[in-house]
Amino acid sequence: MTAWRRALDVVFRVLALVVLFLALASLAVLIYDVWRDGAGRLSWQFLTSFPSRRPEEAGIWHALTGSVFVILVTAALAAPIGVAAAIYLEEYGTRSVAARLIEINITNLAAVPSIIYGLLGLGLFVRALAMGRSVLAGASTLALLVLPVIILSTREALRAVPSSIREGSYALGATKWQTIWYQVLPVALPGILTGMILALSRAIGETAPLITIGALTFVAFAPDGLWSPFTVLPIQIFNWVSRPQVEFRTNAAAGILVLLVLLLTMNAAAIWLRDRYQKKLA
C-alpha cells in the first residue's frame, strides 16, 4: 500500500512539473516564433521610417514615438493622482466608511476589462470634453486604466515603511503631512516607482482602449503635441497582422520584437529598483 501511494505521489509530482514546464515552454515558443518571423526585418530603416503601402519600405517611427509620448503623458497624469489617493487611503482615512467604499471600488476597477475604459474614454474625453482623437484623450484614458494598479502598488510600498519612522517624526513635533512628505515618501519612493513602471508597462502594451477611442491605424507623422492625432506600436502591429500579405505580417513580428524589448527594459528597471529597495530595508 505504502509503495503504491509513494509511486502515485511521484507520478503526481512529475505531472505537475510537466504542466508547469509546458506553460513556461509556451513563452519560449512564442518568443522563438516571433523572432523567426521578424528578426530579419529589424533594421535602422525599419525603426526610423513612416508607414507605407509598400511593406518593405514601411517602418514604425510614428508608432514608436506615439507610444513613448502617450506613456509619458499618461505617467504625468496618473502618477500624482495615484500616489495622492494611495496616501489618503493608507495614512488618513483608513477607518472611515468612505475609505472602505473607495477601497472596494478600486479593487473592482482593477478588474474591469480595458475595452470598457476605451468606451469611457470615447464617451467622456473624445466626445463630452471634445478632446477629439488626440494624444491627450488617449493618455487620459490610459491614466484612468492604470490608476487602480498604481494606487494598489503605492499602498503596498507605503505599508512597508516601518511605523517607527512615523512615530519618531511625530515625537519631534512634526505634523502629519510633514511626516509623510519628509519621512514616509522618501523611504517608500523606490517601491512606488517600481509599481509605477510595472503599471505603465501594462499600459504601453494596451491596444483595445486606444482603438475604441479612435486612435488612427494609419498615421504618416510623429505626434507633435497634446492635441495631435496619434497611433501606438500595438495598434500598428494589429494593423499589420490584420492584412493578408505575408510581408506585412513580417513587419508585425518585427514590431512585436521592438515592443517586447521596450517592455523588457521597463521590467528590468523595475526589478532592479525592487532589489535595491529590498536590500536597503533589510
Binding site: I81, G82, A85, Y88, N105, N108, P148, T175, K176
Partner: peptide, 26 residues
C-alpha cells in the same frame, strides 16, 4: 494640513468618479 487632507481625499474619490463615469457613459 486640512487642505492637504481634502486634496488627497479628492484624488481618492476620483476612483468612484471613474466607476460613475463608466456607468453614466454606458
Amino acid at each position: 494640513e486640512f487642505l492637504i487632507e481634502w486634496a488627497l481625499f479628492l484624488c481618492a474619490l476620483l476612483s468612484i468618479g471613474t466607476t460613475a463615469g463608466i456607468l453614466v457613459v454606458l
